[in-house]
Design a protein around this nucleic acid. Sequence first.
DNA 1: CTAGGATCCTGTCAGC
DNA 2: TGCTGACAGGATCCTA
Length: 288
Amino acid sequence: MPELPEVETIRRGLSQFIVTKKLTKTTILCEKSFQGTPLTGTVTAVRRFGKALIIDLATGWSLMIHLRMTGQLIYDGHGKERYAAGHPSDNFIAVLPNKQTRVILEFDSGTLYFNDQRKFGFIKTLPTVAVADDSFIKKLAPEPWVMSPADFYDRLQRHHNSCIKATILDQSIICGLGNIYADESLFMSHIHPERRAGSLTREEATSLLLAARAVMEQSIASGGSTMATYVKADGTKGDYLEKFAQVFRREGKPCRLCGTTIVKTRVAGRGTHICPHCQPKPEEVQNA
DNA sequence: CTAGGATCCTGTCAGC
DNA sequence: TGCTGACAGGATCCTA
C-alpha cells in the first residue's frame, strides 16, 4: 500500500534517527518476512529506489526493505517519540511488538519494528554492491521527476494496448505510483483510467506526467497520505488523503471541480475512483 | 514481446 | 451469532 511518498517519508525520518548508529540485533518473528543473513554494523545511509528502502552498513552489506501492501516501519527511540510510515493503522500507536510484527531491528539508539499484516513485504540482506543488480531494482523505470515528457509518451506507445491505469502502475514503465496516486494523477489530468495508453495525445501524456509529479510532491510535503509520521501520544498523522485527495476513497461524494458524484469501479484488477464528468470514457473521447 | 488474470497472506466488512 | 465472499495504497508468475 505504501507508495513512493510514504517510503520517502520513512526514509527521511530514519535517516535522522539511525545514520551513524549501530544495528546490534535482529529478531525474526516470521521466517517468510526475512531473507538472508542477519547483519550488524554502523548505518551509513538510508536510500530509496522507487518503493524500496535500502539501509547501508559500514560493513559493505545492506538491508533492502519492501513494504508491499500492508508493511509498516515504526521506529521507537527508546520510549521517546515514534516515527512511523506505511500501512495506516492503530499499530502506529499500539504496544510493540504485536501480532503483526514480523521483524525487530535493534539499534543502539532505538528499535525499528517491521509490521506486515499480509506478509507480502520483506526485508532481505545483500552486499551493498549487489543492490543495483537486484532483480526488482534493476527493472525500475525512472521516477516522474526524472522522466521527460517525450520519454513518457514513447513508453506509453510501447504499451499502446494497455489501459493507461495499468501502465502507470507498472514500475518498469514509470516508477513510484501506486493505486492512490494513479487515480489522483488521472483525475488531475482529466484522463479516464480505461483509455488505451496509445490513445493519449502528447499533450495528455505530458499533463499526466506533470500531475504524477504534483500529487506525489504534495503528499511528501504533507508527510504521506494517511501515514502517521511523528506519532506522539496524541497520534499526529500525515494527512494527504483528508486534505488533498480528489477521488480516492471519495465514491458517492461530489467532485470538487464539477459536483458530479465520484464513482468506484474496477480497472486493471484494482479499485478505481473516477469523476464521470471530468474523466470522459474512451468512446466519449473518440466522439468529441 | 505484450496483456490480463491468478496468486501470495491476513483481516475486516457487508449480506444472508 | 456464524458463515461466505469480496476486497485491500503491491508485485510476480503463468497463460495465451
